[in-house]
Computed example of a mutant assay.
Amino acid sequence: MARAATPLLKIINDVAPHQLDAPTPCAEYDVRRLVNHLLFWGPSLEGAGRKETVPPPAASEAELDLTGGDWATALTAQVERVSAAWAGPDAWAGSTHMGGPTELPAALVGGMIVGELVVHTWDLARAIGAAPSWDDELLDYVHGEVVKTADQGRQMGVYGPEVAVPATAPTLDRILGIVGRDPGWSR
C-alpha cells in the first residue's frame, strides 16, 4: 500500500490552486472532484485495513466538498493513515468491509485500494502534467488485481469500458486500459 501511495504523496503538493478545475483522464472528475473523492472515501478505506466498518459521510460525494482549506495537508494525512492501516499482514487476512455491511476478503479489498491509488495518482498526475512511476513488481501486482476485478468493476460503475491497449504495452498502460483509461490521454 505504501509503495502505491508514495507517488500520490509527492503529487498532492504539486497541485497548484488554478489546477483544481483542470480535467482528468477520469471523465467524471476534474482535479477538485477527484481530490474530493479521495478525501470522501479515505476514512472507509482506512477503516477496512483495521477491520472496522467506517461508513462514508451521510451526504453524497457530490453534495460534500472537502477541498476547502488546506486540502493538501488533509489528503496527505489521509493517504498516510490508509497506508498505515494496511501496513501489517493482519490487514490483508480474513475479511473486512469497505464502508458498508457486505464482508469481502481483505486481500481483495486491499488489492482494490492499491489499484485505486495507482490509477487516481496517474489521473492527478496527467491533469497537472506530472509523471508518476512505480516499480515493476507493484505494477505487476496491480495488473493481476484489476484483471481479477474488471468485470465486477464495470458492473459497479467503478471501471469504464475497456480501452484497447496492445499486449506488448507497458504494464501501467495495460492497467489503465483495463480500468477504462486511455494511456495516451492529455489535456
Rank of each mutant, 00 (worst) to 15 (best):
V114G: 12
Q152D: 10
R3F: 06
G68M: 01
A4V: 05
W185H: 09
R154H: 08
P55L: 10
P101V: 04
L172H: 14
Q155L: 11
T121G: 11
G157W: 00
V158N: 02
L117D: 02
V114Q: 13
I128H: 01
D65P: 01
A85D: 07
W71M: 05
G94L: 00
E162R: 15
I113G: 07
E162K: 14
D173G: 11
A84L: 09
T76D: 15
E80Q: 14
A125P: 01
A5V: 08
T6D: 10
F40K: 00
P161V: 13
W86D: 09
G144C: 13
V114L: 12
W41A: 09
G129E: 06
A167Q: 14
Q155Y: 09
W71F: 08
R3G: 02
D182E: 12
G111D: 11
D14K: 15
T171C: 14
V142S: 13
P57F: 00
G88S: 07
R3V: 04
M112P: 05
E116C: 04
A22D: 06
D151E: 15
D173S: 15
A22H: 08
Y141D: 14
L20R: 00
V31C: 06
R154C: 05
E116I: 02
P132Q: 05
D123M: 06
V114F: 13
V119M: 04
A164I: 03
G88W: 07
R50D: 06
L39H: 14
I12G: 05
M98T: 11
T76L: 08
W41C: 09
G144D: 09
L9A: 02
Y29W: 14
A27F: 01
E63Y: 00
E52L: 14
D70P: 09
L20E: 00
L139M: 12
I128L: 06
K10C: 05
W92L: 02
P170T: 12
I11G: 01
R32M: 06
A22P: 01
T76H: 15
D182A: 13
F40N: 02
L176T: 04
G110F: 15
L20M: 11
L66E: 00
L172G: 12
G157K: 07
P183V: 13
R126E: 02
L138Q: 12
L124V: 01
V35I: 10
D136E: 15
E162W: 10
L172A: 11
E52W: 09
A125Q: 04
D65C: 04
G88L: 00
T6A: 15
V158D: 07
V15F: 03
A125N: 01
A16M: 06
R33G: 00
G100K: 14
M156N: 13
H120L: 01
A22M: 04
G153F: 10
G68K: 01
V146Y: 12
L20T: 06
W86F: 10
K51I: 03
G160V: 03
M1I: 01
L138P: 02
Q78A: 11
A62V: 08
E103R: 14
L176C: 10
T6V: 09
H97A: 08
G177L: 13
D21Y: 00
A169G: 13
D14Y: 07
E61N: 03
D123G: 06
Y141A: 12
